[in-house]
């Protein structure tokens, strides 16, 4: 067993590395809201506008938005992201369950829309780790969005 310390060492190093990163993450989070890390209202507006652009050019997902009031979607989604990332906003739209009722969004299309949101964030120069933090905020809402 002792001869195998090389790879054991690597194993332990990785775990230590992960722990340190997690701890660093905890420290950072207490300092700044996700809203601030993203770059506030301007950046969120940019993400939402990129997202709408992505949707408009995706045949499959645009189907779901044919009847949508895009201006309202634009305004409410900005509020929604702002509020849920800890920003100083008020959400005045409907609940996720209400918004998605009757749309019968399936799992593939949901994930495709997540891909579009990722594209929207990438085009807004949101770094990969911040993108993940945004996705982590919204992932638990999926249950109110699909197969409704």
């Amino acid at each position: 067993m002792y001869q195998q310390q090389g790879i054991y060492g690597d194993f332990m190093k990785l775990i230590t590395f992960l722990l340190v990163l997690t701890l660093t993450a905890c420290v950072n989070q207490t300092q700044k809201t996700l809203y601030e890390q993203l770059g506030g209202k301007d950046k969120i507006t940019q993400i939402v506008e990129n997202f709408i652009y992505e949707i408009e050019f995706n045949e499959t997902i645009y189907e779901y938005f044919k009847e949508t009031d895009i201006q309202r979607f634009h305004d409410k989604l900005i509020e929604h992201i702002c509020v849920n990332t800890g920003g100083p906003c008020q959400y005045t739209g409907d609940t996720m369950a209400q918004v998605h009722a009757g749309m019968n969004i399936n799992e593939s299309d949901f994930n495709l829309t997540v891909d579009l949101l990722i594209n929207a964030m990438t085009k807004a120069d949101i770094p990969h780790p911040l993108q993940n933090k945004v996705l982590a905020v919204f992932a638990p809402m999926r249950k109110d969005m699909i197969y409704k």
Partner: peptide, 11 residues
């Protein structure tokens, strides 16, 4: 998968 769990990286 834990989204963003390791300083923003997915675990």
């Amino acid at each position: 998968v834990h989204l963003g769990a390791v300083n923003g990286y997915n675990l």
